[in-house]
């Protein structure tokens, strides 16, 4: 019954990540990609909420997008998993549906 939620917006520009995090149901997976990867950084205004999501479910970041933006994995919230596009495909396959928080 799990849903893969994808977020492609910077949490500092749009409320997509905040809204996504408010609609999670058990078994969820959240994938941050495109500008959504900024939501994976430690010490930001939304980090506490992302950390909570890491504790009660699975949160992923698309490594290619993270790297493209010059971000350092050392600054990523602990417990977030890095996947590549193949991993993105696997997540979509494993979950029952995909919700894009555009």
């Amino acid at each position: 019954m799990a849903t893969l939620h994808t977020v492609n917006k910077s949490p500092f520009e749009k409320n997509s990540l905040a809204s996504c995090l408010s609609h999670l149901q058990s078994g969820y997976a959240v994938l941050l990609f495109e500008d959504g990867v900024y939501g994976a950084l430690r010490g930001t205004t939304i980090a506490t909420r992302v950390e909570d999501a890491v504790k009660s479910g699975r949160v992923y970041v698309l490594g290619e997008d993270f790297k493209a933006r010059g971000l350092d994995e050392g600054k990523m919230i602990e417990g977030i998993n890095v996947v590549d596009y193949a991993g993105f495909v696997d997540l979509a396959t494993e979950c029952d549906r995909v919700q894009s928080w555009l």
Binding site: N8, E34, Y85, A86
Partner: peptide, 26 residues
Amino acid sequence: INEGPYQHQAVDSAYQFAKAALDKGH
């Protein structure tokens, strides 16, 4: 795909996703 090419990454992301899915035999 909802966004235009070059203006937004959507077309690129969808392409990379499609390629990865096809590579995996989907």
